[in-house]
Amino acid sequence: MSMSSTELQELARKCRVEIVKMVYRAQAGHPGGSLSEIDLIAALYANYLRVKPDSPDWEDRDRFILSKGHASPGMYAILAEMGFISKQDLESYRVLGGVCQGHVDMKWCPGVDFSAGSLGMGLSFGMGCAISGRLKNSERQIFVMLGDGEIQEGSIWEAAMAAKHHELGNLKVILDRNRIQNDDFCETQMRMFDIPAKWQAFGWSVKEINGHDMEEVVEGLDFLKNTNDNPAILIAHTVKGKGVSYMEDNPSFHGAAPNDEQFAIAMAELGEVVN
């Protein structure tokens, strides 16, 4: 049963609430990139990924690789919604012994396929998963989420070249183009120029969408799911911190937690009643 756009929007809203709560409780973490990616991830899990929450290691599952692993609250929120982990597990974010490590980790959290935390690695790992699927004649699809700052890493382009060389049509990238990285806006750190043209030049199929318009998100994910003769990338234009006014487009909330007053504002803006 696939969810309607309205249902997906509500799912993403609930995830946003949990993202802000996780970071607020831990007084640390990365809300900005979690809020920018969440519409995409929520729709992907709800309507596209072939996974089994009660059997997270099912060999033939689709893979989702969050390469921008600092945006872990977004992934934990959807994993809890899907039933891979419990809502209570979300309280373990950044807590000693918790399944919700600071960066997503396959050794700690059910449903996580890749131990992230170092940028530029997930696409190569996804390539290995994609070759594995091909060698096993499996229909499994591999989805990798990259940040836009992340593609400044040279190893991303090693992988982009290699994925086309090996014609990995089962490898799909979602690029969270939120225009902000750790220190500042991407353009101040390393000018990006024409990102779609770069991927096209590497031989990839490319589509651009507004990553917060759920109908466009669905169209974009349809494009990825149905492009199986070529590696494909969905460039999703997003807003860092989307949904919380003072976080939106604000480099300060790449990796910072809200204080008490800010937390209350965020909950109100996200339509959450807090006792």
Binding site: M121, S124, F125, G128, I131, S155, A159, A162
Partner: peptide
């Protein structure tokens, strides 16, 4: 491309 090689290998091992 050694960096890509190591992680492609990791993806294969995970599968």
């Amino acid at each position: 491309g050694e960096q890509n090689m190591l992680l492609t290998a990791a993806g294969l091992a995970s599968s």
